[in-house]
């Protein structure tokens, strides 16, 4: 692609940077005005900025956003999962580890003895949710803040995956930060 030719005025440099400085100073004075009004309690501070004060304020995530997994439950509170290994097979990151055992109810063939997801490997593709024939695994907790001092904190076991609290922290892990 040919380099666009600059006009003489553009090559003078000063008129062009004056435009840039005018733009940034316009932002400065506009935001300063809104900050001043906000300090007097006349309007919300949101008008003076596009950022959010993150840990205290969060953007609403869309419902279809894929977040940390959870295992859905039967009415008695046990996992719906039948340990068919479909999710573990579909997983491209190879991060789901299931150990099956016999279910005491003869109508149900199997249940997971262990169901671990290594979140440090997970790529959040959602294939496990698509693959599940029992609607036993979902990615709708709204939890994205997976940060721990130890890799072990990122290996979620069955008991932890059964809760759907977005701020839950595994008992064996020390979190880097905890949202409010």
């Amino acid at each position: 692609m040919p380099k666009p030719k600059m006009t003489f005025v553009e090559r003078l440099y000063l008129p062009e940077i004056s435009k840039g400085l005018a733009l940034t100073s316009r932002h400065f004075f506009r935001n300063l005005w809104h900050h001043s009004l906000a300090s007097l309690g006349l309007e919300s501070r949101d008008r003076a900025m596009v950022t959010i004060a993150y840990p205290e304020v969060r953007r609403p995530y869309p419902l279809v956003a894929r977040s940390r997994h959870r295992l859905t439950k039967r009415e008695d509170g046990s996992p719906k999962c039948v340990a068919c290994m479909m999710c573990a097979t579909a997983c491209p990151a190879d991060c789901i580890f299931i150990e099956a055992e016999e279910h005491p109810d003869p109508a149900i063939e199997k249940r997971p003895r262990h169901f671990d997801i290594d979140m440090s490997k997970c790529v959040y593709c959602g294939f496990c949710v698509e693959a599940c024939p029992e609607d036993a695994i979902r990615m709708d907790t709204g939890s994205f803040e997976l940060a721990y001092f130890d890799r072990k904190g990122l290996v979620y076991d069955k008991e932890f995956l059964l809760n759907d609290d977005p701020h839950a922290v595994p008992a064996h892990a020390e979190p880097l930060s905890r949202g409010n």
Partner: peptide, 10 residues
């Protein structure tokens, strides 16, 4: 602060 206010930050 000035850079923040110029860039629509706090």
């Amino acid at each position: 602060k000035q850079s923040a206010i110029m860039q629509d930050r706090i």
